[in-house]
Every structure is written in structure tokens, then in C-alpha cells.
Computed example of a mutant assay.
Amino acid sequence: MNTASHPKPLRILHLTGTLDRGGIESWLVNLLAQVPGSEARMDVLVVSPDPRPGDLDRQVWGLGGRAFHAPPTGRPLAFLAALWRHLREHGPYDVVHSHIHHFGGLALLAARLAGVPVRAATSHLDSRRGDAAAGRGRRLYLRGMRAALESGVTHRLAVSAEAAAALFGPGWRERGTRLVTLGVNLEAVRGARGGAEHLRRELGLPPGEAVIGHVGQFRPQKNHLFLLDVFAAYLRRHGPARLLLVGDGPERSRVGARVRELGLEDRVHLTGSRPDVPGLLWAMDAFVFPSLTEGLSLALLEAQAAGLPAVVSRGVPLDPRMRLEAVEVLDLEAGGEAWADAVARALARGRAVPEALDFDVARTSRELLAFYAQAVQEAGAGGGPR
């Protein structure tokens, strides 16, 4: 649908976590870069236990968006009051779009009460394993958030079937949930190829040694500690290599301690959060992703755009449009040695850069904008859900 039918630019508020370099947050920045301000004006409200300024706040402002920070999620009444004020002072918004999983239910209920016509929730994560193991207090919280979500949401979206079931329940299809593709900046990945050797020298990666890589925030679900055990097993079984860990987060100190415990300080490179992830992918020879849970990994999509062979856990949903021949899937229970051997097989397969990959953010951004425009038009005509 052409957004020209909407007389003014759509006003959209995205709710997300701290704007550090992560999958959802980087996608939001790419989205802002793709959408003309004449068609949509987008704000970002950071909703987090620790809503501090992140690495990408300035980029949001630089791309014509605005980044705001809500009170910590541990103070729900203060959060609701601040969200209500924000919607009144900075709106009116046509769309409030939550990317914050369960807590988004409370935010969308508030948006409904404030009169926002389109209230979308995207599930980016398969949280079922952790939700099933939750204690009594957490179960009560989840029940309350799900009830709020049912009352507040008008459009249910998810990046995979697994993520859809986690947020919207086993009957997600019957509830009209739409599976969406976020997309990655394929042009940026392809354009970074020529800088690989420079980056390898900068990072102290010697020529002739394989570089095993991972990109992701240092959080428990990413399973960095297991990855270190895999790497140690690889060194024992297959010889010298380097491990490149790109990202930052609350688990970084634990990861660093484990690196020292294993005596791998000279072979594990913790780069921290960096803006040149596309170039770093070309400095790698294989991509390893042992996550406990995921939605649809944008980091894996970028690795595929760079042609990297990959080893991933069964907790990582795969899309049929991916280059599945370049991916080996293992159970985490197989253990470090089996994973190390799979990494060796990935390195033997080598890099194979695809001519095309059906996950270009330039296209998926247009699809999302058309979805917004249609939803707003239907809501204005009285044909959309309330």
C-alpha cells in the first residue's frame, strides 16, 4: 500500500531495550536510515531495568529520530506515568510498536488508554524454556503481562514461529500473528569486504591461523561460557586458532574470568562493542552461535551475507530462505568436543559468498512501512482491531 494515502507522515513510537549494538537495536537504526521522514517520523523509547544512554542514541537522533528514556521497569507505576506523559507531550502517535517482549503488554495497554489506534507487538525471542522454569513470582508477573497484552495489542508480529509461540501462546496462528522479516544491511556487509586484512592486523590476528567468530551481546542466553569450552576443545583437537568475540554486556566480566581460567588470554579477542561489525565478519573464517534461545538471529543473517560457514545450536531458529547448506546444527548436549569437530568441518567447508540473500533491510523496511500505513488506515476507517 502506498503511504501517500496518509496525509501526514506516520508518527511511530518504538519501545525497545537500551540502545546498545544488538540485533533489535541495530535493526532499528537501519530502519530509520531507510524510511524517508516525509513518510514516517519515528521515535524510540528505551524501556529497560537500567535505561541509560546507549551506543546508538546519537545515531537515532542523527537519522532524524528521537531517543527517550523511560524510568526503570522495576518501577512499573513510575513507568506508566512517564509513558502516559510521553504519549501526551510528544504524540499523538499513529503507532506504538513494542519490541520488549512480556513487559510490552503493560505499555500497549497504556497506549490503548491514551487513544493510540495501532498497537503492535513483535516477539523477537523464544523465551519458552525460561518461562516454563519460572518461580511463583515470575509466573504471576507473566500472567499479568499476558493479560495486559491481550487487552492492549491490535497487531501481533513475530520473527519466527518459536518466538510467536513464546509471546502469544500455542494458538498464535489463530490469533492472527504475522511472521515478519526484519532484515539486515546487506550493502554494508558486502561493502566491508576489502578491509578484512587491515582489521586482522589491527586485532593482532596472525595470518595462517583460523579465526572463529561470534557476534552478540554478552548475556546468558548467548552461552559464551560454553563457546569458550568449545574453543578450548578445538585447540586440543585441531591445533592453533583464534576466537573473536564481538559485543559487550553484563556477562563480559564472567567471560573474561573464564578466559583467564582457561589460560586463553593470548587466543581470545574480546573486541567490545564496535561499529564495524560487517568488516569483522570478513576477518572471521567461521561463525559459531551456541545460543540457548533466539528469535531469528540478525547476527547469523549478517554472517551468511559475508559467506561464513556456521555452527549453531537447536535454540537458533532457521528460516528456509537462509543458506542452510552452510549451517550445521547441533544439540548443546553433544558437548564441547563434538562442537569443536563441527567447527573444524565448518572451516574445511570455507567461505561461500551468496549472490543474493532474501533479507535486505531496504526491502523489509518498505514492507513494514506499508503494514503501518494499512493498519492506520483500517483503524481510522473503523475496520481495525481496537
Rank of each mutant, 00 (worst) to 15 (best):
K8G: 12
K8F: 14
K8C: 13
P9V: 01
L10Y: 02
I12Q: 04
I12V: 15
L13N: 02
L15S: 07
L15C: 07
T16W: 00
G17V: 01
G17L: 03
T18K: 15
L19E: 03
L19H: 03
L19S: 00
L19Q: 11
D20Q: 05
D20C: 00
R21F: 12
R21E: 05
R21Q: 07
G22K: 07
I24P: 04
I24S: 09
I24A: 14
W27S: 02
L28Q: 11
V29M: 04
L32M: 02
Q34I: 00
Q34D: 01
V35R: 05
P36C: 04
P36D: 04
P36G: 08
P36T: 03
G37V: 01
G37Q: 09
S38M: 01
S38N: 07
S38I: 01
A40L: 07
R41D: 05
V44E: 02
L45V: 12
L45D: 11
V47T: 03
V47E: 02
S48I: 02
S48V: 05
P49F: 06
D50V: 08
P51S: 06
P51L: 06
P51E: 02
R52P: 01
P53I: 01
G54D: 03
G54R: 02
D55C: 07
D55N: 09
L56Q: 06
D57H: 04
D57N: 06
R58V: 13
V60R: 09
V60P: 13
G62K: 09
G62H: 11
L63V: 07
G64K: 08
G64E: 12
G64S: 11
G65F: 05
G65V: 08
G65A: 09
G65C: 09
A67T: 13
F68Q: 03
H69Q: 06
A70Y: 03
T73G: 12
T73L: 15
G74K: 09
G74W: 08
R75T: 13
P76M: 10
P76C: 10
L77Q: 14
A78T: 03
F79V: 11
L80V: 15
A81P: 02
A82K: 05
W84S: 15
R85T: 10
H86W: 13
H86I: 00
R88E: 13
R88H: 14
E89C: 11
G91A: 11
G91E: 08
P92A: 05
Y93N: 06
D94W: 08
V95C: 00
V95Y: 00
V96G: 05
H99E: 00
H99D: 01
I100E: 05
I100T: 13
H102Y: 15
H102S: 15
H102T: 14
F103Y: 15
F103S: 13
F103A: 14
G105S: 08
G105D: 12
L106R: 10
L106D: 04
A107M: 08
L108P: 10
A110M: 14
A110S: 14
A111D: 09
A111Q: 08
R112F: 05
L113D: 00
L113E: 08
A114D: 06
V116E: 00
